[in-house]
């Protein structure tokens, strides 16, 4: 069991995987620049993690996700360090559903995005509630205030806000990655171990 996990990690972290993981991290941290410039009210800050999960696998995605947050902290946003658990969940869940072939169909991607969103909301709510009392100065704070002013507890309010917003964010993330992997040049896709689970791999 341990040996097979080790083999799996080695496979996901060899050769072309390292630059892809690094690129995914950079994508996680830079995509906000585009959403910000276009004023789209979503984060998509797990885009790179999902891309790594699909092309490489769950372990590589966990590495990409966690290191993204560490790097974000190093670049001046230490609060990102607290959100490692949802990032890990995103990596593992996406890696598993990608293995199961969910990224071959857009309908399955939407379903995956919704489940992923609910999972992420459930995991970040306790962190947000406990450490930030639901205040992060993000755009979604008004929802938290709205729920709280209607008598819900901090945890409930943060959770409701997450359950409303995260599935949308993750569905868009999944769909972006879905369309990206369909358009990747064949020779490039074959460089990654996750290729065989995509419809582009020429199986």
């Amino acid at each position: 069991m341990i040996q097979s996990v080790k083999d799996q990690i080695r496979r996901e972290m060899s050769g072309a995987a390292l630059p892809l993981i690094a690129f995914s991290m950079a994508l996680n941290l830079s995509v906000g620049q585009i959403t910000g410039a276009l004023k789209i009210p979503v984060y998509l800050d797990s885009l790179g993690t999902v891309l790594s999960a699909v092309l490489l696998g769950p372990w590589a995605a966990v590495v990409a996700g966690c290191l993204s947050n560490v790097l974000a902290a190093a670049l001046g946003n230490p609060t990102m360090m607290f959100f490692l658990p949802p990032m890990i969940a995103i990596g593992v869940f996406t890696g598993i559903v990608a293995r199961a072939g969910w990224f071959r169909k857009s309908s399955l991607c939407i379903l995956g995005g919704v489940i992923q969103g609910l999972l992420a909301a459930g995991l970040s709510a306790p962190i947000s509630a406990h450490l930030f009392a639901g205040t992060t100065m993000g755009g979604a704070d008004f929802l938290v205030v709205f729920f709280r002013s209607h008598g819900y507890s901090i945890f409930e309010s943060v959770l409701f806000q997450g359950l409303l917003m995260d599935p949308v964010d993750k569905v868009i993330t999944y769909l972006v990655v879905f369309s990206l992997t369909r358009n990747l040049p064949g020779r490039l896709v074959t460089r990654f171990p996750g290729a065989s689970h995509l419809s582009t791999s020429g199986e």
């Binding site: 496979r11 060899s14 050769g15 072309a16 074959t190 460089r191 990654f192 171990p193 065989s196 791999s201």
Partner: peptide, 10 residues
């Protein structure tokens, strides 16, 4: 050595 290292499906 780059071929085996970078084209894992090869």
């Amino acid at each position: 050595g780059a071929l085996a290292a970078h084209y894992s499906s090869g």
